[in-house]
Structures are given as structure tokens and as C-alpha cells.
Simulated assay, not measured.
Amino acid sequence: MDAAQFQNVLIGLAIAGFALMEFASRRYQATVHATANDTKLDLLVFVSVVAISQPLAILATQNAGQTWFSEFQGALADWPWWAMFALLLLGDDLTQYLWHRASHSPFLWPLHRAHHSAQYMSVRMTFRNNFFYYLMMPGLWISGALLFLGIGVWVYGFYLTAKLTIILGAHCAWRWDEPLYKIKALHPVMWVVERTISTPATHWAHHALTNKDGIGNYTGNFGNMLFLWDVIFGTAHITRKYPEHIGLMDDRIHGQEHWVHQMFYPVVHSKRADSALRIGGTIYDETKHSGS
């Protein structure tokens, strides 16, 4: 079994494990009320990431490197594994934090909006985003470039497995961190954990329907693997609590956007008047709707 196959097996086990815990804890049955529209979007974006976006980024950077920069191929191959891992944290996870943060700006929000339109948290919506959001994600292309430069495939496989396990856990309907906060002996450990990696408490806050409850923080908590970036750059909000409601207020007012518009904007546009998924459409701002 090569590195890629081993990595895929471990990621598959992580997905299955968190999904199993969602059902065993009955959190899925109690909180995930997905529509057929949700199911199509969750499934098709996941398939597009696995089958198109990531392979394309790696293949294209490999081909470009061999065509124009062949003298640099394998330049990092002699680096120790921990240095390669640290470089991936900077080249992939830090840039994803910055990309995610930029995606909450009016210009890029339509490409990220789909991720927040789910009115539930679950492993099934972890990859839910616009198709072009992933194609444009800097971390995928930088990772491809680093592999060309000689980052070990086993190091990359371990890194990607660790990252996706953390991200899946942060989106999971089963809140694995919740019982740990109640164990007094673990308070110092959890203080470090919640400031280092994304947890359900910190990431659910990012998906909150509102910031007005003191728990939600959809204008922060952008970290993917490392929550440490939020701590460093001042976007962290830690409460050890979970928002009561998830999703977008404009969807609750006007109804869901069609999955095609969410996945393929700007190629296709929404017909909804109050929509970020159409040219000239409006983005809902709760600070301007005090009665909401």
C-alpha cells in the first residue's frame, strides 16, 4: 500500500468513525434535518473536491514545475520530516485561514456562502462549498508545489490525515469536546487544546446563525486545522458553549437557495431578489436588521 492509499484509508476511517458517533450519540437524528437540496450539495461538492479540485491542483503544479522549473524538483527532499510538516502548516493551513477569512468579505462571500447555508453541523457538510471556492484555494496549489519541491508523500499523507481528522471533528454533530470540559482535571489540557486546534465549540460558533447571543462568532474563528491562527491574529472567540441555531438568517427568511446556484455561482445565478448569488444582489447583514 502506497502513501496515498494509506492516507485515503485513514481519512475514510475518520469519516466513518465520526459519522458512527453522530448516529450512536443520536445527535444526527436529533439535529440534522437536511433537505434533498442539502443532500445534493453536500454529496456533489465532496465528490468534486476528491475527484477534481485536489487532483487537478497537484497534477497541474507537477506538470508546470517539470515544464518550467525542473531544476528545482526535489529541492526539499533532504529536509527533516518535522520541517516539511511545519512548511505545510504555513503553506496550506495558514493560507487556508487567510483564504477563509477573505471569503467572508463581500467579494468572495458568494463562493463560501454554501458552507454556512447548512442549518446543521455534521461530517456530511464538512466540504460543502462552492465548486470554484476549492479551485481557487491557495493551499491546494501550494501543497502541489511543495510536493514537486520534494515534500515527502508520507509526510504529506500524515499531515492531510491529521488536518482532515481535526476538521471533520470540528464539524461533527457529535460534540466530542463537550464532556471533556466537565472534567476538572482536564481543564489545563483543554485550555491548550481549544487554543491550538479547531474544536466543535469554537467552530460551531463560526457557523452560528447570529453573533448576538455572545456565543456565535461568524466574523471570526476562521481556523481549519489550527485554531492557533485565530489566537495569533485576534479573531478567536472561546466560550465552551454551542450556538442554539446554525445557518443563515436570509435563508430562514426567504428559503434555501437552489443547490446549483450555491455550487456553481457565478456561472449560474440565483433568481432570488435578496441574494448574494446574483450580480447586484444583497448580502444579509444582521447589524442592519436589529429586529431579527
Rank of each mutant, 00 (worst) to 15 (best):
P243N: 12
M190V: 00
S25T: 15
T161G: 07
H207Q: 05
H245W: 11
L226H: 04
A201R: 08
V45Q: 15
V231R: 14
E257Q: 11
Y218R: 07
D93S: 11
I238C: 04
K271S: 05
R26D: 09
W82H: 13
R124Y: 12
L59D: 09
S53A: 15
T126Y: 03
T219D: 10
K182W: 05
K182C: 02
H171D: 06
Y120V: 01
V9W: 14
I197C: 06
F222P: 00
L87A: 12
M125W: 01
W81N: 07
D177R: 05
V268L: 02
Q7Y: 09
R101F: 02
M121I: 03
A273E: 15
L90Q: 04
K40S: 01
I279C: 01
R195L: 05
Y181P: 03
A64Q: 05
V49F: 12
D213Q: 08
H261P: 00
A30T: 08
S117H: 04
E22Q: 10
N221C: 09
P138N: 05
V50M: 13
L89D: 10
L108C: 02
H171M: 07
S25R: 14
Y97I: 00
Q66S: 14
G91R: 11
N217R: 11
H206E: 06
N211Q: 14
A64S: 08
R128I: 00
H115S: 03
D213R: 13
I167T: 08
G255P: 00
V189H: 12
F264T: 04
F127N: 05
R113Y: 07
I151H: 08
R113A: 08
V50I: 10
L43Y: 12
A276M: 06
W82A: 06
S70D: 10
A51T: 12
T61L: 14
Y159A: 03
A75F: 02
A102W: 13
N63F: 09
H254Q: 14
F6D: 05
G150N: 12
Y159D: 03
G214W: 13
L228A: 10
F127Q: 12
S103F: 08
R27D: 11
I279Y: 08
R113L: 08
H33I: 06
P110C: 04
Y265H: 12
W141G: 01
Y120A: 07
H245S: 07
H171A: 05
I11P: 00
A205C: 00
I167Q: 10
M190S: 01
I142S: 09
R240F: 01
A34T: 03
T35D: 13
K212W: 06
K288P: 00
G280T: 11
Q29Y: 14
Y156F: 10
W81V: 02
M263C: 06
A205W: 01
E22K: 12
K288R: 15
T219N: 14
M121Y: 04
G139Y: 01
D177Y: 03
F132H: 07
V193F: 05
M190F: 01
A205L: 02
Y218T: 01
A24L: 15
T282D: 09
F222C: 02
Q66I: 01
W68C: 00
N130H: 10
H206I: 03
A170Q: 08
M137T: 07
L146G: 00
P110W: 07
E178D: 13
A60L: 15
E22L: 11
T39D: 09
A51E: 10
